[in-house]
Amino acid sequence: MSTLIRAAFSAFRVSMRLRVVSPYAYLNWLVFPLLFTTVGLYVLSRPGAPVSHLAYGVLGGGLIGYWTVAYLDGGNGIQDERWNGTLEQIFAVPTPLVVILFGKVTGSLLFGILSFIPTVALAYFGFHALLPHVDALRFAISLGVLSFSFFAIALTLTPLFALWRWAFQMLNGFELGVYVLCGFMFPVAIIAPWAQGIADTLAPTWAIRAIYAATTTEGAHDYFTWWLAAIALSLGYLVGAYFLYRLVEKHARMSGDLALA
């Protein structure tokens, strides 16, 4: 057991070190979130817009950065390992792939959450935008729930990307659609009803609803329902992930498709 924990920690450490030297990582956690925050705050602070909307500008860019690093790094990570020729090797070690990915995804989450630092700073110094009514405790719990949902999604998507390279391409193309469905920068309530139905199957949507509720005294505050929905959906993804890993293991050994052929 202790060697498994050590393996996961080692994967975490290596993924962090590779990230620190990769310019793409900075694009995802620093540059994109800042650019989105800028557009978001300009649009949301247009003359006549309600002040309560500003929270979406303050936090939206950070949430986008957090999400992007969490899922994109996972996907790119697998692709990089494939190009490197190391995917085959981490597959052939006596440590299950899921343990290695556990470490890598944890690294992504820790790196991704850093996105909030530059974006909140930009909101404060550039736009004098603040969150005066934050319910710190519930905000923190909601962020924790969101992290768990990102973790579950990243862990589920990574084997998916390992199996089907085009899945990564598709999700990459749908990137901004995810921002819409999860309500990163505006409430899901404003989008078309059928799209809200889809959004409700995504765990982060519920966690983000709770996060924004914790920044304001207005509106509904059904924290427990939202947290529960996010956690239940995440657990559901993890069950799916379990079968996906079984499939990866089997499929990869059938086709020998781990090398860059």
Partner: peptide, 25 residues
Amino acid sequence: GYVAYKILLPVTQILFFVELGVYAA
């Protein structure tokens, strides 16, 4: 690739910023 980068990506870009604008304005 074309579907992902030349259809999905542009369409979702429009959707995202339009909804953002609708929320604000």
